[in-house]
């Protein structure tokens, strides 16, 4: 089972991650100037630039540098930030922790709420609860995070001053210090992320409700409550898992806007800063994290679908 099914997918997953760092690395090579000129500024003497370039290993060919980076990365050493001069790992790690916390709250609260709303919409198909929930989902799909965030700030920190509009705690804030300013960023992310989950859940609930086994169960006189809990929910959640997986991968990118609006010290704001300062080691580590999340989510959704659906377990003979 493992060698036949999991191993090749794992191999491809790793290849995908490495390839995506190659792409970002190559794109950054196209930038005029390099880290040495960036650090020393425009007035640096050519000798100083040449020395620093040697120190940073920038005098080597790009391919050689990438191989060196990859070798170090595999041992967990992602280099030093060109801006702060500190190891990239702990800095990105701290940001990742903050983002994971924000994303975790969003996933736990928002995704479960979305599943329930999708279920309700599906069960009350074409009646007013469905109309209401589907409209909310449509708006959630259609409104960018920066608009949701701006409107939430207008409502809950300007009109009714309930929550802070920005995080005042700095880069090194602990989770406890960040907690009071969490509601608005988390709500903004939830609203947008929930939309697709609501829709998918609604669609799959409607599909399941029309299936033969639900009719059979009804004919056997099962109560609606039991029917929903025992039969509808388990079958409807499965296709929704795919959308959930996609949304988790999306969160890594989606937090960028929300974090920058609320000044939340996570991966998103770090991403913007490191792109602006062309801090290649930090950008590469963020790429790795993003790619790992994307690949892992896809892989997990794929495996979950396979193990829950025996028909997919064996490759079909192609014609």
């Amino acid at each position: 089972m493992f060698t036949r099914f999991v191993a090749p997918r794992l191999g491809w997953a790793i290849a995908t991650i490495v390839l995506s760092t190659v792409l970002v690395f190559s794109a950054m090579q196209a930038l005029p100037g390099d880290a040495a000129t960036q650090i020393l500024g425009q007035n640096a003497t050519p000798e100083a630039v040449a020395t620093l370039r040697r120190q940073l290993g920038l005098d080597q060919a790009p391919v050689a540098r990438f191989v060196t980076w990859l070798g170090h990365a595999l041992t967990g050493n992602f280099g030093t930030s060109l801006v702060s001069g500190q190891a990239v790992g702990p800095e990105v790690g701290r940001a990742l922790l903050n983002t994971s916390f924000l994303a975790g709250v969003t996933i736990l609260v928002g995704f479960s709420l979305a599943m329930v709303l999708g279920l309700v919409a599906g069960l009350f198909r074409d009646r007013w609860p469905d109309a209401l929930i589907s409209t909310v989902a449509l708006v959630g799909m259609s409104v960018p995070e920066f608009i949701v965030a701006t409107l939430l700030v207008l409502a809950f920190s300007i009109t009714i001053p309930l929550f802070p509009a920005v995080v005042v705690a700095g880069q090194n804030a602990t989770i406890g210090q960040l907690l009071p300013s969490m509601p608005l960023p988390a709500l903004s992310l939830m609203f947008v992320a929930a939309a697709y989950i609501i829709r998918m859940m609604r669609t799959s609930v409607i599909d399941v409700m029309e299936s033969d086994f639900v009719h059979t169960a009804r004919l056997k006189g099962i109560t609606t409550g039991r029917l929903v809990i025992r039969h509808v929910v388990p079958s409807a959640v499965l296709p929704t898992l795919n959308v959930v997986a996609m949304n988790i991968a999306w969160l890594i990118g989606g937090v960028v806007v929300v974090e920058s609006i609320f000044n939340y010290p996570g991966m998103g704001s770090l991403m913007i800063r490191s792109v602006q300062s062309r801090d290649l080691p930090t950008i590469l580590l963020i790429t790795v994290i993003g790619a790992v999340t994307f690949v892992a989510c896809n892989l997990l959704a794929d495996l979950a679908a396979t193990f829950l659906n025996p028909r997919l377990r064996y490759p079909r003979n192609s014609k």
């Binding site: 290849a15 196209a30 990118g253 991403m271 950008i283 993003g290």
Partner: peptide, 21 residues
């Protein structure tokens, strides 16, 4: 495979890199 690797880079990061370059 190549397209999967592009998809694996967070969309906003990819766009920021393109705009910076």
């Amino acid at each position: 495979r190549v397209l999967d690797s592009i998809l694996a880079v967070p969309a906003i990061l990819a766009m920021l890199v393109v705009v910076t370059v």
